[in-house]
Design a protein around this nucleic acid. Sequence first.
DNA 1: TTCAATACTTACCTGGAGGTAAGTATTGAA
DNA 2: TTCAATACTTACCTCCAGGTAAGTATTGAA
Lengths: 119, 119
Amino acid sequence: MASSDRRGPYICGIDAAMDVVSGKWKSLILWELANYGTRRFGELKRGLPGVSEKMLIQHLREMEQDGLLHREVYREVPPKVEYALTEHGRSLNEALGPLGEWGQRRAERLAAEGTPPPA
Amino acid sequence: MASSDRRGPYICGIDAAMDVVSGKWKSLILWELANYGTRRFGELKRGLPGVSEKMLIQHLREMEQDGLLHREVYREVPPKVEYALTEHGRSLNEALGPLGEWGQRRAERLAAEGTPPPA
DNA sequence: TTCAATACTTACCTGGAGGTAAGTATTGAA
DNA sequence: TTCAATACTTACCTCCAGGTAAGTATTGAA
């Protein structure tokens, strides 16, 4: 969910899914964790160029509350925290597959049509 | 795309798809048009309770520019305008299917867990 | 005693998504 | 001459997602 809690009522499934995945970096976090299995806070930060620490932690917290990922704290010095997808997170990532493929085709089509990225 | 034009560069397919589908009412417009085939402005408005005319027309214009739908004007009095999905719009709607199903399951799970909608 | 490394935390600010409400254009019917 | 019906259009405003930048907590090593 977004920081302004919703959790319904939803008018359709897309609505319910978007409530959980909308957020500038969430789908990328999902992708990163699906690819690497487990990632530390700093690794995620480096893997998402441009993300601010505030938004990264905020998104991670929301995704944890939404049951998409698990947070494991290792009491070491310096501190170490690992994030990993839950089963729900993995299934969401899979459900996003077709959308990603559609977007991929769109990007290729735009490129083929000679639409240069804006200056 | 959002009113602040993006059209890339995209860092992944999800990104490219989200650029086109993010917007409070866009997935619902997609669903409405996929279900009815063709809809007039006023019909869409009545079909999306709560949408403002400003946002509806803005979303429709953006989706037209993104090649998702077609706008057909009938020179009559009173005026008549019909909207229908293009092939791209239809394929996007299909790509959203699994996400919608995931959201549906999530909504059912939340209901089963006894998470009442917020007051 | 200070520093390095990691993972946050907090205060503050800006831009833009989206809402409200009133106005416009067209023309046949009453 | 006014009104009804439809599809916008415009001005103005609010709220919040997200950014920046500085601060905190922990403790072993130098």
